[in-house]
């Protein structure tokens, strides 16, 4: 039956409405769980707070496990879902820059907007920095174009790369996540508490 819009259960115009509603809920929950604090976010790099790791890993697991159960029951057609294309080096370099920005600024793009909404000045600086970055990237695009469009691997997933059934990969990632949670708890207990 699903996905709802491509299969005609909802008209195309609902796309943007649902996106806005999910966005509102996402922003609200980010703020409610304290993700608009750069200290909390940066904690994952210093070892005093692993909420970011736990929340996003759990969210990914819940959605992937749920989607595959729904696929099994015939409620959604996984082959119709959008898979983001992989541009290998673009993703690696972009990920590294994002990581540096994350640890230096204490926000990721989504949470910085959230923090702007509650009036944090450091978040304003961060968002202006993003804008400057976008400007530089756009102006210097011919230089980056080869990386941006190169090393194209198609719309691949781990299932395609490892040639294993999806369920085994999900189990492996779940175990990886649980180990990461366990280790992060040990690290957190060893690291000096930071009050924030």
């Amino acid at each position: 039956m699903g996905p709802l819009i491509p299969n005609g259960f909802l008209s195309y115009e609902w796309n943007i409405i649902i996106a806005v509603l999910i966005g509102l809920a996402f922003g609200f929950i980010l703020e409610a769980s304290g993700f608009s604090s750069s200290r909390k976010l940066a904690g994952v790099f210093y070892g005093y707070d692993f909420a970011v790791l736990k929340v996003f890993f759990t969210a990914a697991l819940v959605s992937v496990i749920g989607l595959y159960y729904m696929d099994y029951l015939g409620w959604i057609n996984m082959s119709m879902l959008y898979v983001h294309p992989t541009y290998l080096w673009g993703a690696i370099i972009g990920g590294a820059i994002m990581g540096i920005g994350f640890v230096a600024g204490g926000f990721c793009p989504g949470t910085s907007i959230c923090a702007v909404a509650i009036g944090k000045l450091d978040a304003w600086v961060y968002v202006i920095g993003i804008m400057i970055g976008i400007l530089i990237f756009s102006e210097a695009f011919p230089i980056f174009e080869k990386i941006y469009n190169g090393y194209y691997l198609g719309n691949i997933t781990l299932v395609d790369s490892f040639e294993l059934p999806a369920s085994w990969i999900i189990l492996a990632v779940t175990l990886l996540a649980l180990v990461a949670f366990f280790v992060s708890d040990i690290v957190r207990k060893r690291v000096k508490k930071v009050f924030y």
Binding site: Y69, I170, L175, L178
Partner: peptide, 21 residues
């Protein structure tokens, strides 16, 4: 954590079937 693990394990143990895609 064990709930997550059981859910993921359930996916592995589900009998596979040929889907009419």
């Amino acid at each position: 954590a064990s709930l997550l693990f059981v859910a993921a394990l359930g996916l592995v143990l589900l009998p596979s079937y040929q889907k009419n895609e």
